[in-house]
Write a protein that binds this DNA or RNA. Structure first.
Lengths: 230, 230, 230, 230
DNA sequence: GATGAATGAGGCTTCATTCAT
DNA sequence: TATGAATGAAGCCTCATTCAT
């Protein structure tokens, strides 16, 4: 690695540059695909357009993703399902009340998914699930199931510690899911209409939703400590 | 053209029946189109299938609607008819607590909209709003705005009477809207996937949502009467 | 059906003409497809070219045949497998020696398949069987199997009546099949090369083959009558 | 470029090995191409797969052959090498009956051509002759013509010695050629279909064919000696 | 008005070929 | 020379739309 061999250096540089380009391709394509899928829907997005937006040719797209369907799955993995691992770890080490844990989870979701283009995927799946059964099954397995489980963990923790009222396990998670997924869907659907009456400020929306929810959720049984026993 | 030709007579009968049904045609086509657009989305719905379900030929469809896009617009316009006038009158005369009023409104919405084919329109607008801005504007004016106002009246009533905690006027309505619209969308989207984990029982869902919400909404100030002073 | 209703007549004429066209389409397409498949091979034949040669557009082809593969199967059925039924019936009623029966079968094959464009299909299947397993299976079931069975019947008859020497059932049929299928393949392959040395006159070829074969096949056991007992 | 850079040394070694193998490259490519063309046909063989099987990159293939078509032509030319000279000499010195001579020739053909990879060339030429007329002409001159002549010699010898019946000179050779070439073609075509009904055991096949043929060929004139007078 | 056969633009995907490194 | 990422023409198939009847 000393400077004694100029050819080696050049070769290394060249290889590095090409590899940098090659490594960057999938990311660029995934970014372009996310944008277009969200903008126009799965069916209406043309593979060639994804390629063009990523600055490559049609053929190159299929060099990295075997089909439009695989491209979509990769977009979902990159932007959503990939996050659950890290979130679960974070929650494993969470210190604090279950109410704060719920607040934290919702804010994290908003920061990494809800507020980003990835939120469009949620609307997308709602629209297209019926037509693309394989995509629906994939999404259910990689997104919906982990999401439900993650929320159920938080609820269970709150109930176990006496912070939360006993609540139906299955339908309880929807008290959080529904407002969040609705927000994502709404944003994606009506973003184009710039009507100030309709515009939702996510922070206020989330604040009202989560505090009202927690207000209704928190156990009024006086004896319990509000912080988990640890 | 005399009666000497039996075939001519049959033809005449057919023609008569056809003319009698002439005005019905667009209605049948619109109904078929609504079902299919809701089931499969705009892009995946084929003109021929709409025609077949309406019992006419593909050519006839284009006799009544200049294009698939026009058909779609007609479907949405046809099915967005405000039920709001009647509801507002009902609520004007409502006797009882605001909590009950909210419960009543939600149940009514579920009975007349959420559980019917009309909920398909909700999903349709969510899915395609981005691609049909005019329709989106139309829908916003005719459905979204009146809906918000109706809910705001109930919230205001509850706050005025001291039943409800003071809550952000604008974002409060979403605490009801979000779970309901989410339910409508979810139902339409994942109905095809017969996974018991994902199946939502609307009554349980609504019960959990509304009671948790009211729990969080109802003022804890002890002195207030739960019926508005009027 | 009298002339008293001119409209009916016109309508009938119109319908007849359209139906005549519609009914003719598949045949025209099959004829064009046979020619092109034989000329260029399965893979190298483009659907659009088939359509063009049949005088219709690309789309029309797919109106009558769901895919290129189905088109090919239809060509095989139309030109080869469809004949076995009638041949089996003919052989059921055949009167005469088994040698004549074999001669008759070979000549019939030559007349209806070997000498026609259909013989190209034989070469085609040899070339493409490896790549299109479904086509290969189809051809085996609908052509090869019935063909073998038909020949075996003739051989068995000859052996039973004492006309033919006992001969291996399985490999015996190839003594007829091989020269005939070779002829078909040869014709299709080297037809383009107009070298008189190479040119095969089918009648002479068949005559030499079949007579040499029969010479070798006919039982020399003296006691047997050469005509079946019947 | 001094020895101070170990990477450079490695590169030099690689370069040396590469140069040593340089001339081998086309051979490896041709071998790989032969296998694949025979297995899958011309159209279905992908350039990349040829390169991979030869252990080089796609780019290298096109360094040695300007196009897929040129590669194909090179493959065929490379593999059509006449074994005829040597065979003709052998037959010049053959001692024994003409029937045995025919048996010997057929067994030799099977051993050296029919059962080897070279039989793939036969199928290849059959399949693609129409698309590559120059190759067809070449093949005809180098293979077909000498083959015919060789067989004709044997037949003539048998007829001259009185062993064989007088038979049409031109079409007689096909009584041997047809079954043999058919066998080669059949083997290549239906090898993939593992259907025991279709599997041909070459030895049995050849035995039945040749003995039936000889049975039909051998002169029944009793007085003749079976060994030629020489 | 009603039909349904026909059209052809357009989408996904493959793969021979090129070229910067 | 060798590589392999990139290209884009070309093929199969779909389906909105037209139009002769």
């Amino acid at each position: 690695m000393s400077t004694s061999c100029p050819l080696c250096e050049i070769a290394a540089t060249v290889r590095a540059k090409r590899e940098r380009r090659k490594d960057a391709r999938p990311g660029e394509l995934l970014a372009a695909a996310l944008e277009l899928f969200v903008e126009k829907g799965y069916a209406a997005t043309r593979a060639e357009e994804v390629a063009k937006r990523a600055g490559v040719s049609k053929g190159t797209l299929f060099l990295y993703f075997a089909s439009k369907e695989e491209l979509f799955k990769a977009v979902v993995r990159e932007n959503i399902s990939g996050r659950f691992g890290e979130w679960n770890v974070e929650l494993d080490h969470f210190q604090g009340s279950s109410a704060d844990m719920l607040r934290y989870a919702v804010r994290a979701w908003w920061k990494h998914i809800g507020s980003t283009k990835a939120s469009g995927i949620i609307k997308l799946m709602m629209s297209e699930a019926g037509n693309f059964p394989e995509l629906a099954a994939f999404y259910q397995l990689e997104v919906i199931k982990p999401g439900h489980e993650l929320l159920q963990r938080i609820f269970q923790r709150g109930v176990d510690s006496g912070e939360f009222r006993a609540i139906d396990q299955k339908y309880g998670v929807y008290t959080v899911l529904a407002p969040m997924l609705f927000l994502a869907t709404w944003k994606s659907s009506w973003a184009a209409c710039h009507d100030t009456d309709m515009e939702i400020d996510p922070d206020q929306y989330i604040a009202v939703q989560i505090e009202t929810l927690l207000n209704g959720l928190i156990s009024t049984a006086p004896a319990h400590s509000k912080t988990p026993a640890k």
